[in-house]
Simulated assay, not measured.
Amino acid sequence: MSKQRKVIFTITMLYTILILYFLFFAFGRMGAAERTTGYTFIFLPDSFFKLPTISDLLHPTLMDFVGFGNIVAFIPYGILILLLYRTTFLRFITMFFFSILVMETIQALSFLGSFDINDAIQNTLGAAVGFGAYKLGVRSKNNWRNFLITAISCMVLLLGVWGLCGIVDKASTKEEGPFVAINELMDSSGNSSTGKSLNSFKISAQNVKPHYNMYGVAGGNSETFTYSYKEKIIFSLYYGIPEPTDYSGSIRVSVDGREVLTSSGEVQRSDPDLFPAIFEIPIEAGSELTITIEGNEKIWDVGYRKMKYLWN
């Protein structure tokens, strides 16, 4: 083995020891292992493309560093292995991926971590970036020139992978769409009750102007409204008792019989700074939402936002 090859081999071994330390002992893994009672195996890839954004890195958390480090930390292997052995990309990436799977399995079985296929894919992406950078950079006998081009290629390919992962993340993540007002709710008699838009009123000395609709009951009675939707939505409404008031009134909201909101005039009297209040909740497809209003309680701007993909 040549002197240069021995140096590269030593660097590879030392770097591997460093990586193994982070895989098995860093981040309090030893203490966590003592509290772990079961194995964790994640076999389905679903989040390997969820890398921190530029805005995340301006105020990074530990998980941001871990997510980005899963790729960056393994880039050197794509360069070091090629400096030691001649191999094709397919053979290299296959052997590297299976090696990472072995490490992930040991992590899970030793309770020093979990088997996470997403981590394995991110690690392999990093090694692939290093492999590509080496192939682009090492093209002459000038070592300094090769080093510079390889370093630049690493940054370009990493930015490319980062950007591609961001595009995939955006395309595969549902976000809230525009607000859609619900202008008809089913009342307790089974008829459609139309929400009316009224003039502005005051709650806790604040001027309130409903933009879309308003529901209430007359004469201090009680009324129950129901609503169901075939798709998953984010349901929302505003509520409160307009002034002047004796704070007689209340509101209850249930989803499939499970109460998710209850409020009364006494709550508004004791803590007026919370009103007018907004209520928002995700509703699963096919669920039935029930709203019961009593007394002078009012709800307005009742509606939802549909969860949809960016490309919809």
Rank of each mutant, 00 (worst) to 15 (best):
G220V: 08
F65K: 10
L310K: 05
E259T: 10
D301M: 10
I75V: 11
L148A: 15
D271N: 12
Y85V: 15
E34K: 11
L148C: 10
T94H: 00
T105R: 06
W144F: 13
T36E: 12
C154D: 04
G130Y: 00
H211Y: 11
F275P: 07
N207P: 04
K202W: 01
N213V: 09
F48H: 06
K196W: 00
L80K: 07
V260L: 07
M1W: 00
T124V: 02
K170S: 15
Y239F: 06
N199Q: 12
E104V: 01
S287L: 06
E223W: 03
L80Y: 04
L158H: 04
K209P: 02
G132D: 06
H211T: 15
L44P: 02
D169F: 10
Y238V: 03
I203Q: 02
T245A: 09
F92Y: 01
Y39V: 10
A33Q: 08
T36Q: 14
D301S: 08
T262N: 14
Q268F: 03
Y85F: 14
V302D: 03
N118H: 08
M214S: 14
F201M: 08
S189C: 11
T36F: 07
V66G: 01
F65Y: 10
S287I: 08
E288L: 12
P52D: 05
N207R: 12
D256N: 15
D187S: 05
V253K: 05
A205H: 10
I19S: 03
V7K: 09
I117F: 00
L82E: 12
I8Q: 01
G126W: 02
S236Q: 10
L80E: 07
V66M: 11
L84W: 05
F89D: 01
G216A: 15
T290Y: 04
L185W: 01
G28H: 06
G137S: 01
E243R: 06
F22M: 13
G28M: 00
L310E: 08
E104K: 04
N70G: 11
F115H: 02
R86M: 02
P45S: 12
V253W: 08
S264K: 02
R258N: 14
I93K: 07
Q206Y: 02
I149R: 09
P272R: 04
D169L: 13
S192V: 12
S2E: 13
A285N: 01
R91H: 08
F96S: 07
M63W: 00
I152D: 07
L62S: 12
L164H: 04
F147A: 15
F235R: 00
V7F: 10
N123G: 05
P210G: 08
C154P: 06
R35C: 09
Y85L: 15
K230H: 13
Y85D: 05
Y304W: 05
V267K: 13
A127C: 04
G190M: 07
W311Y: 12
Q4S: 15
A127G: 05
Y212D: 15
S228A: 09
V208G: 02
I75E: 02
E284S: 13
G78S: 05
L125S: 06
P52K: 06
H59V: 10
Q107M: 04
A127V: 02
K50Y: 05
V255P: 02
A120N: 07
W144Q: 10
V102I: 12
Q107A: 08
I299K: 05
I283M: 13
L274S: 14
K174C: 04
S222I: 15
K202C: 05
E231W: 00
V302N: 06
Y212C: 05
R5T: 13
